[in-house]
């Protein structure tokens, strides 16, 4: 990994932490719109797959060592090991998958492949929502010893509207930032 990748990865981990604190209150839900997963998705959209995965690994490690970088200023190994830790651990494969999907569209440009916009939408939905929620629900069910169905009902369904909004915001921001990807 060259120095330029390392600094980009480190700073994207920092940006994810900052976004976790930007909370937009929603009128209809007790859970605010937090930017944490926007950081995950934009890492995936703007970095190479290895770098994207590394940036989220670094982010989680920063949280694990006690810096209040998770949403709501939470931190500590306990949060990672706890019932909602699966969502956080899902950030690593999530960013990786998002980057792999969008990267393949960029390389295939000109040939018969997905247009970059569709690839970005597909990337954020699959990487940022499906992968993250999948790991989150499995871990929630395991730690809380409840069925997958119940875990889905408490851990995914209430957040779907927020996730959709975040995906739209992310893709809109990506459209203006895509030149940053090398």
């Amino acid at each position: 990994m060259n120095t330029r990748s390392m600094t980009r990865v480190g700073i994207m981990a920092g940006v994810t932490a900052v976004l976790a604190w930007v909370a937009v209150p929603l009128p209809f839900s007790p859970v605010p719109l937090t930017g944490q997963t926007i950081g995950v998705m934009l890492s995936g959209l703007l970095l190479a797959p290895r770098e994207a995965a590394a940036s989220q690994t670094v982010y989680l490690l920063c949280g694990a060592l006690g810096l209040p970088v998770f949403s709501g200023g939470r931190s500590g190994l306990g949060i990672l090991m706890g019932p909602t830790g699966g969502y956080l651990l899902g950030f690593i494969p999530g960013a990786l998958v998002c980057s792999a999907i969008t990267g393949s569209a960029q390389r295939g440009a000109g040939r018969e492949s997905l247009s970059p916009l569709y690839a970005a939408v597909l990337g954020v939905v699959v990487g940022g929502v499906v992968v993250v929620d999948l790991l989150g629900v499995v871990r929630l069910a395991q730690v809380a010893q409840i069925s997958i169905g119940k875990a889905l009902a408490v851990g995914v369904v209430p957040y779907l509207v927020g996730d959709a909004i975040k995906c739209i915001v992310t893709v809109a921001a990506w459209a203006k930032l895509r030149h940053l990807r090398q």
């Binding site: 060259n2 120095t3 330029r4 390392m6 600094t7 980009r8 480190g10 700073i11 994207m12 920092g14 940006v15 900052v18 930007v22 937009v24 929603l26 009128p27 209809f28 719109l33 930017g35 926007i38 934009l42 703007l46 909004i165 975040k166 739209i168 915001v169 809109a172 921001a173 203006k176 930032l177 940053l180």
Partner: peptide
């Protein structure tokens, strides 16, 4: 404002933040 307005308001924060973050990263390298 409504949900859409608030969500849209995040874009003018995100774009400059990422541009400046990437610039800082490259300068640091």
């Amino acid at each position: 404002g409504g949900l859409i307005t608030r969500a849209k308001a995040m874009i003018p924060i995100l774009v400059p933040l990422f541009v400046s973050a990437f610039r800082r990263a490259d300068e640091l390298a």
